[in-house]
């Protein structure tokens, strides 16, 4: 297994406020990495550095290196559009486009210049199947996406991400707005697609991290306190603060 991401001495700022302090970490391909920590600890900021979503925030800037497949994402070598082509993202609140279910899937393909009806049709079906929502929507692909339930909307957003075939998928607290059954479906789905994608998930739900991830990182106040195999982190944390957090002494 080779390293997909190598992060070296990463510092990030919103204006003068430092959001991430000296983060160092490696992430291997085709694994699930969970990032946990209390809200405001910087885990969302971190994950948004990986597909340069933070570029949209005007006051944001960062120092240090984020190597993706050996090349720095923030050096001029990567075009931001190409990065998002390889690194997809699923957000905290389901955010389908206010259009039909079908158009939600095909948008990413159409903007890449794909016009062939049959291919579009095929990829739509494949992605919806992979996202485990095909059976629920196959008869109403032209319905408005906002007519779906929250859990279905989130799986549609995952399907939309799968359709453009990225190599990495970032999940930013994907289940925090969902009920337990939808959550279970999405976790199952993650384990299912892990063989094809590198997955990084931010979550405040420790059980979720324990259930799905191979390795876990604990963030606190902008620092990466501890990083290791999920099993180790949850059963035998090295740092006192990690232990306090996972045993529920603060959070």
């Amino acid at each position: 297994m080779s390293d997909e991401f190598q992060i070296k001495n990463l510092n990030a700022f919103y204006g003068s406020k430092q959001a991430l302090k000296n983060i160092n970490l490696d992430i291997s391909e085709k694994t699930i990495t969970a990032l946990i920590g209390p809200s405001g600890c910087g885990k969302s900021t971190f994950i948004r550095c990986l597909n340069r979503m933070n570029d949209l925030v005007k006051s944001f800037h960062l120092e240090g290196d984020i190597l993706y497949q050996g090349t720095d994402l923030y050096s001029g070598k990567w075009d931001v559009i190409d990065i998002r082509d390889k690194i997809g993202m699923v957000f905290q609140k389901p955010n389908p486009f206010p259009k039909s279910i079908r158009e939600n899937i095909t948008f990413g393909l159409k903007i890449r210049g794909m016009k062939d009806r049959n291919i579009l049709e095929h990829i739509t079906e494949q992605s919806l199947k992979k996202a485990a929502i095909w059976d629920e929507v196959k008869d109403r692909l032209n319905d408005h996406a906002l007519s779906l339930s929250g859990g279905q909307q989130q799986r549609l957003c995952i399907a939309r991400t799968l359709a453009v075939q990225p190599q990495v998928i970032l999940f930013d607290e994907p289940c925090s707005a969902l009920d337990p059954i939808s959550t279970a479906k999405i976790e199952e789905l993650m384990l299912e697609i892990k063989k094809d994608f590198t997955i990084i998930i931010v979550t405040h739900n420790m059980q979720q991290a324990a259930r799905v991830s191979d390795q876990s990182g604990f963030f606190l106040l902008g620092e990466l306190i501890e990083m290791g195999k999920t099993q180790d982190i949850f059963t035998n944390p090295h740092d006192k603060r990690t232990e306090d957090y996972i045993t529920g002494r603060f959070g």
């Binding site: 559009i81 082509d85 903007i111 890449r112 210049g113 794909m114 453009v164 075939q165 990225p166």
Partner: peptide, 8 residues
């Protein structure tokens, strides 16, 4: 993803 980019 195969790139058939119309973007420029």
């Amino acid at each position: 993803m195969i790139l058939l980019r119309s973007r420029s």
